[in-house]
Write a protein that binds this DNA or RNA. Structure first.
Lengths: 341, 341
DNA sequence: AGTTATTATGCATTCGAATGCATAACAGGG
DNA sequence: CCCTGTTATGCATTCGAATGCATAATAACT
């Protein structure tokens, strides 16, 4: 007896419009497609009535019959969203410009992706941009279902999905080189989470290069990729060792934290006492208060490329898998003593 | 003749599963709902077959019949996304925890909202959280269609939508008061975009309060709410006037820009030469390199509240409209000389 | 075993738009 | 005015799952 006091008003359907306009439902339907032939007279007539009645096409019903939802899923971790809001905007904008919509699935971290993948197939989404790690069987799954898939900054060994990523490893090496050339000989690393592939690639390449240049073990701390952790863990480390020549941080947030730790907690001069290098070139890194030397990750370009790759694959489902490696640009600022200009 | 070489494989439907399991489609359907009675034996049997065949329910088809898409729209401007990525995450997370999905519509600015609104009714979304200005006829539109609507940081005069916003005006006044009490007598304002209501509310309240305290016209510049513009426009202003006692910035990005302008471009001591105050309390404001005095906007709490308001209204469509004003907290840091502790 | 109470299942319809095919309406030509 | 060629419209079906109602199957009692 206690039914909802306000019933959601019944939706106006194409049949309602058809009836009111004295035509068939098919004719109404055709009014909203450009390609079909329909006499201008009836079209105007129907459109007027439709407007008066407040009729709008139901995208869900259309999707059911056209087999396209026009929704593209994006899976992003909390970290990605917080650190690369530009990415979300760029992807959303590009998608919308191509007539698609953005179905955003946020996940705590790479491990909690399951539910989102399930949703992606249930809805069903026309394509997926994934900024997180994905279990191989799921990759397979999307492939067999014919859902185009693009990985963003996660390199995946597969021939059934595209992938665009910064070349973290090369950049990590590069940093090792320029620091070494500039005379630095003792180092520390502040990493992100242990299983963040991005952090891993950057730091390991850095360390390996230095090893091959004859540097011994490099003290390294894992953190959660945040400013606060960067600052705290660096102080931790410095409490138990001598000041190194340089600190390499797996991303800029950590870098900023380390910079502040040096300047405000330890009272060190940067770069005279120590060189600090970050990764990403987020906006704050470029401000004079920080002037963090870093590697630029052109996130907006990458986002746009990711979307076009996806759209291409949506057109042409059996394109060969592409693997785009974007080279990061070393941005020299005053937080590090570097060789060269 | 040139048809797509890879045809998207036909989706496995409940009929397919039914046939394979030797039951009817209805029975398959019922397997995926907890509430309906079905014998454990057949359920297991069907679920096993469904899994083997890779069957997943089609959310679109379900929505068509249940009249619920389980998708909630969020409309956010580029600025909101860039400046409050936390908001996106918090909203997305809260929605997902309640069994809904996030349909994100990004817009360039408040003026380009039209297309998104159209999409919101077409899809159709079960509810809408709008972080932008919306034309009154559209508000009406959603109301008549029975689509719950919550405004975030946009105060709208309406009885048909909820709204949660920071009390920008009171906070603006408060800042005027504390600066005045601390002896500041000459001021400048760096505003955001002219039609950003948030900027308007903050700055006008600040100015009005100072006027009523006997302060004359306050030099004010409109910008685009970014660090770069804050820095640039402040320098512009300082080129044509004497140093004021205090600068009030409509948000923290501007505040950081002004701070850097003072310290790095003008060589001023903050807060000795000038007090700088921002608004929002973004992460960077709290770092020692800036230590910007500001008003905290509890964005994550607000986001969660917005979602619960929406969910409540989705349950109970004719709740009275609520208007929640969140009080900002003044965060005293070292960028301003203030009275009191 | 017979009768009732209780599940468990199936049938048929519904949601709203798109579309292939058939046909009606109309225009143009002789 | 009739015939042909277009163009515009309608009919009927489809997409995939949910659900009220009817009924078959089973369980529970005498």
């Amino acid at each position: 007896m206690n039914e909802p006091s306000t019933i959601r008003p019944r939706r106006i359907t194409s049949y309602d419009v058809a009836r009111a306009a004295g035509v068939s439902q098919s004719t109404v339907s055709r009014c909203f497609k450009d390609d079909t032939k329909i006499s201008p007279k009836t079209r105007d007539h129907i459109l007027r009535i439709a407007r008066e009645m407040g009729y709008t096409r139901n995208a869900l019903a259309r999707s059911l019959i056209t087999q396209r939802s026009n929704m593209v899923g994006v899976i992003a971790t909390a970290f990605t969203i917080r650190n690369n809001p530009e990415l979300i905007y760029a992807v959303g904008d590009a998608l919308q410009n191509s007539g698609n919509s953005l179905f955003l699935m946020v996940i705590k971290d790479d491990d909690s992706i399951g539910a989102s993948l399930q949703k992606a197939v249930e809805y069903p989404l026309d394509g997926l941009i994934c900024c997180a790690q994905m279990p191989p069987d799921w990759i397979e799954q999307f492939a067999t279902r014919g859902v185009p898939l693009v990985f963003f900054n996660r390199v995946v060994e597969t021939t059934v999905a595209d992938c665009i990523a910064l070349d973290h490893a090369t950049a990590g090496q590069r940093i090792a080189d320029v620091l070494f050339e500039a005379g630095h000989r003792s180092f520390v690393c502040i990493r992100g989470p242990d299983r963040a592939p991005v952090s891993q690639l950057r730091v390991e390449a850095f360390q390996n290069r230095l090893h091959s240049l004859g540097i011994g073990t490099i003290p390294t701390l894992s953190t959660d990729f945040s400013y606060a952790e960067g600052r705290r863990s660096f102080l931790d480390l410095m409490a138990r060792m001598d000041r190194p020549d340089a600190a390499f941080c797996a991303n800029d947030q950590l870098g900023l934290g380390v910079l502040d730790a040096c300047r405000f907690d330890l009272g060190w001069q940067v770069p005279d006492d120590i060189s600090v290098i970050g990764f990403d070139d987020i906006a704050e890194a470029g401000r004079p208060s920080y002037a963090l030397t870093t590697v630029r990750q052109p996130i907006v370009d990458m986002a746009e490329t990711a979307v076009s790759m996806l759209l291409e694959r949506m057109e042409e489902p059996d394109l060969e898998a592409r693997r785009i490696m974007v080279q990061g640009e070393l941005i020299r600022r005053s937080s590090a003593r570097l060789a060269g200009t």
